[in-house]
Design a protein around this nucleic acid. Structure first.
Lengths: 196, 196, 196, 196
DNA sequence: CATGAATGAGAGTTCATTCAT
DNA sequence: TATGAATGAACTCTCATTCAT
């Protein structure tokens, strides 16, 4: 990033450009998301775009960062209530949060994610994985400190990836064989079974 | 495909071009896989490339088709032995097959898959999903015909997607927390638990 | 031309290729008349095309030659009767011949001529002009040997060009203001007035 | 036209590109008038060319429009004096104007017109025909309101086309049999005879 | 003689990026 | 700081022509 957006105006500009990037990718696809279109969507000139971002790649990185940050925030918000309810319920609530996030604004972020390559998608999931690993490990320790924790990370790893990828896949391309409720319920049980 | 030149030569050319497409994507990424580079990798002229394929998109589609076909073949080959061994073992064997396939030739197909956008990746998985749904449904019916089959498709859907995406993710970017054996074993158990 | 088409087979081939050239230009326009399409229309391979013609330009030249030759033949055929009827009638008959020729086979040659550039069109008209100049000069000399012949060539030049270009224009893009009969009649009178 | 950049600069650019298009066609012929050559002749980059025109066809259309507009302007300018002189003189003056226009700048526009296909050439002549039809019809009505006007449009149609096409042909490829003066004089008389 | 696969120069066009204003 | 005209490398794709079979 070329400048530190310390000023309010800068922050607005940067946010507006990331918004525009998401909108443009969602509407035209990653391949046809030109800098010109992004700048136009943001309502600024191409020249200005380059004052806030080093180029297209920086824009994409910032968008991915934002999505990850927002997903992390969802987990953070839910974390507080983990101790007060069954794991299954907590998972369901969290998944509903994520679902709502992905479907918000006409599925804006979902469309972005669908255009993303596996490569970058996976890269972005790292942080999310770390966060959930922390939250769930703590939970497991408190509830069942006796359980051998040797394979706990492995289980959590599998669960997180399974749930996340399958969720994105389902929302993108829902199967007529499964309802949203059934999917979320199944995930809730699966997590509880593995960690409970 | 534009032409059907003399059978044998043609198939060789077509195969060689699909190979070249995979190699080029693996090496340069999808965005920098130009027709010129693909033709060069195949050792032919651009003009010839266009005698066998209508363009870049046709090349990509053919590559995806080939990968899906080969994955389907793996499942088909394993299908025969499903009745003769525990589901858990069968799943492990199949996953090892897939794993080997994805790692073959320096991870060629894995690299291709990583560069693929979520969108197209999912599209290609459809056929695989159908096939496994058939195989596993039959198995479940024969083993436990009593079990309520209402949510069987849902369970299979979740399992297939969970396993497949997580597998690609892990092979692409292995976690130090989980070993290959642990992952495969965990999947084997997960499948058996859900369908057994 | 690469070979002297002395043999019957060769003549057939050459004619067939010129036919194909005309058909292709008429259907696709000059810009999209590729050698591949011409060869395909002629029902032979591209390789064979190059055995009979040096290339695209040679093909075009041959087509133009044919059209000019056929127009010349029309004049020749009519020449015989010039002495036996009023000039006006003779002109009308000739123009009807030309008109029919241009409209024959779905306006094949007309379409070709419309796609031709002014440049080549004019080049081809030269021979026609010479021929008509000869025929009409002779006529004028015999009928009115007294008339000062100083500006006879000029008049004939103007008449031929006026009639020919306007004819092609009208057949290509008929004006609702003028009927075919009116146009031909007007030309007949114009010629008679100038040379009579 | 893709953009309307700051008025003055834009018009200059657009005009300069149309100039360059004419020059390039005149020098290399229509078939070899590539966008690269046009941009080079205009002294700008290809990218800039595409900021002002949608492509080659748009450039050609603009050039044809300009030529037609300039020919129309010649007629307009001369129209004022039609009532004050013999028709024959007026026609001669107008033809001299057109002649000078076509020969200006080393015959630039003449060369362009020669390279044009009959098809497009005719299309462009439409407007000219309409204009002259108006001017001459008015003249004919005022001078000889008694004359049956039924075939006036037909006569004018023939005259305009005859004169225009023959003029272009002659300037392109002058006949040694006819002088410029003789040609123009002959046209003057022909028009007067038909409409006088 | 006939074939048609192979060639590759060259076409039109796009777009990330720069920089004078 | 904002602008957007200018750039030109790079892209996809075409097609006249050749030549081994």
């Amino acid at each position: 990033m070329r400048k530190q957006p310390r000023q309010a105006r800068s922050r607005l500009m940067v946010d507006s450009l990331i918004d525009a990037t998401a909108l443009t990718i969602a509407e035209h696809g990653l391949g046809d998301a030109t800098t010109a279109r992004i700048a136009e969507t943001a309502g600024i000139s191409i020249g200005s775009l380059y004052q806030y971002f080093d180029g297209k790649e920086a824009l994409y990185a910032a968008l991915l960062d934002r999505i990850v940050a927002q997903l992390l925030a969802l987990v953070d918000t839910r974390s507080a209530t983990l101790a007060q309810q069954p794991l299954r319920t907590w998972v369901k609530d969290l998944l509903n949060d994520v679902w709502d996030y992905l479907e918000a604004e006409n599925g804006l972020y979902l469309k972005v994610l669908r255009n993303w390559s596996q490569l970058d998608f996976m890269r972005g999931i790292d942080a999310l994985e770390q966060k959930l690993l922390g939250v769930l490990s703590l939970y497991a320790l408190q509830r069942a400190p006796v359980v051998s924790q040797a394979d706990l990370p492995a289980r959590i790893y599998i669960l997180i990836n399974s749930v996340l990828f399958t969720l994105v896949r389902y929302i993108s391309q829902p199967s007529p064989l499964v309802s949203r409720e059934a999917l979320i319920a199944a995930f809730g049980e699966m997590v509880e079974r593995e960690l409970g």
